[in-house]
Simulated scan of single mutants.
Amino acid sequence: MRNKTKYILLTLGILSLILIYYNDKYALTETSFDPIELKYSKWFFAIGILCVGIYFFNKNLRNIITKIMFGAFGICLALNLFLYIQIYESVQMQKRYDEYYELETCGKMEKRFAADLQNGKIKYFQFGIGYDVELEKILEKKYDIEMFGMGCMIQSEFECYNKLVNEYLTEKYKKSLVDIYKEIE
């Protein structure tokens, strides 16, 4: 095997291993989903490592084994890059949500709303059984408001923030959240 090939395979293997670790660590702890792509990437990584071992023991198959290693590590890296993008977005969204979750009073939420309004990064916290995708699209596209699904447990401090969002929409766009909900129907 040439030096260039060795370095490429080593780079593929190391990058794959790092991304497998990152994705495995954050897939379940931060995003609460266990992606099938992660399981497949681990299998391809194992195949690549197995081929590395076979490469040193069987001199007749080295050309084929090298190609299998490229394929296995390449697929592993591609799957992990795909997952990294998904997981990274979820982790960042969770971090933004956590900033608000720490604010335990209406007064703190009002201060945060004022800061968000000034920065142009207003949020809306939707409560209920189902997540309204259409509402999210409208709030994001027309009003530049990011929406978070909060589930069934209504939390009063988030309702204080939502009340300010409603007042903002009414004042700036002459539409309340009720009007926006009616647009969806």
Score class of each variant (00 low, 15 high):
residue 1 M to L: 07
residue 1 M to C: 03
residue 2 R to Q: 06
residue 6 K to C: 04
residue 7 Y to T: 08
residue 8 I to E: 05
residue 13 G to I: 01
residue 16 S to K: 03
residue 16 S to R: 01
residue 16 S to L: 00
residue 17 L to R: 01
residue 18 I to A: 12
residue 19 L to H: 00
residue 19 L to I: 00
residue 20 I to A: 05
residue 20 I to S: 05
residue 20 I to P: 03
residue 21 Y to G: 05
residue 22 Y to A: 04
residue 25 K to A: 11
residue 27 A to D: 11
residue 27 A to C: 05
residue 28 L to T: 09
residue 29 T to R: 10
residue 31 T to H: 09
residue 32 S to F: 15
residue 33 F to K: 04
residue 35 P to M: 03
residue 36 I to C: 02
residue 37 E to H: 01
residue 39 K to C: 05
residue 39 K to V: 10
residue 41 S to K: 09
residue 42 K to N: 14
residue 44 F to R: 01
residue 46 A to G: 13
residue 46 A to C: 12
residue 46 A to K: 07
residue 47 I to G: 06
residue 48 G to L: 08
residue 49 I to Q: 01
residue 50 L to M: 13
residue 52 V to N: 00
residue 54 I to S: 13
residue 55 Y to Q: 11
residue 56 F to A: 03
residue 56 F to D: 13
residue 56 F to S: 13
residue 59 K to Q: 15
residue 60 N to F: 10
residue 64 I to T: 11
residue 65 I to P: 05
residue 67 K to R: 05
residue 71 G to S: 06
residue 71 G to K: 00
residue 71 G to I: 09
residue 71 G to Q: 00
residue 73 F to W: 00
residue 79 L to I: 06
residue 80 N to E: 11
residue 80 N to P: 01
residue 81 L to N: 14
residue 81 L to R: 03
residue 83 L to I: 12
residue 83 L to F: 04
residue 84 Y to Q: 03
residue 85 I to G: 01
residue 85 I to C: 00
residue 87 I to A: 02
residue 87 I to E: 11
residue 90 S to V: 01
residue 92 Q to C: 02
residue 93 M to S: 05
residue 95 K to E: 12
residue 96 R to G: 05
residue 97 Y to F: 15
residue 97 Y to S: 00
residue 97 Y to P: 00
residue 98 D to M: 09
residue 99 E to N: 06
residue 102 E to R: 08
residue 105 T to G: 08
residue 109 M to Y: 01
residue 110 E to C: 01
residue 110 E to Y: 10
residue 111 K to V: 12
residue 112 R to S: 14
residue 113 F to E: 12
residue 113 F to G: 09
residue 115 A to T: 15
residue 116 D to M: 01
residue 119 N to C: 06
residue 119 N to E: 15
residue 121 K to E: 08
residue 121 K to A: 10
residue 122 I to E: 03
residue 123 K to C: 08
residue 123 K to G: 07
residue 124 Y to M: 03
residue 124 Y to G: 07
residue 125 F to H: 10
residue 128 G to H: 13
residue 129 I to S: 12
residue 133 V to Y: 12
residue 134 E to K: 07
residue 135 L to V: 12
residue 136 E to Q: 07
residue 136 E to I: 12
residue 137 K to C: 03
residue 137 K to R: 11
residue 138 I to R: 04
residue 138 I to Q: 06
residue 139 L to V: 08
residue 142 K to V: 14
residue 143 Y to E: 14
residue 145 I to A: 08
residue 146 E to W: 02
residue 147 M to S: 10
residue 147 M to K: 14
residue 147 M to R: 08
residue 151 G to I: 04
residue 151 G to K: 07
residue 152 C to M: 12
residue 153 M to N: 14
residue 155 Q to M: 04
residue 156 S to G: 02
residue 156 S to L: 15
residue 158 F to Y: 10
residue 158 F to T: 02
residue 159 E to H: 00
residue 159 E to N: 07
residue 160 C to L: 05
residue 161 Y to I: 06
residue 164 L to Q: 10
residue 165 V to L: 02
residue 169 L to A: 08
residue 169 L to V: 06
residue 171 E to D: 15
residue 171 E to R: 06
residue 173 Y to H: 14
residue 175 K to N: 13
residue 178 V to I: 04
residue 178 V to S: 08
residue 179 D to C: 15
residue 181 Y to D: 07
residue 182 K to E: 14
residue 183 E to H: 03
residue 185 E to W: 09
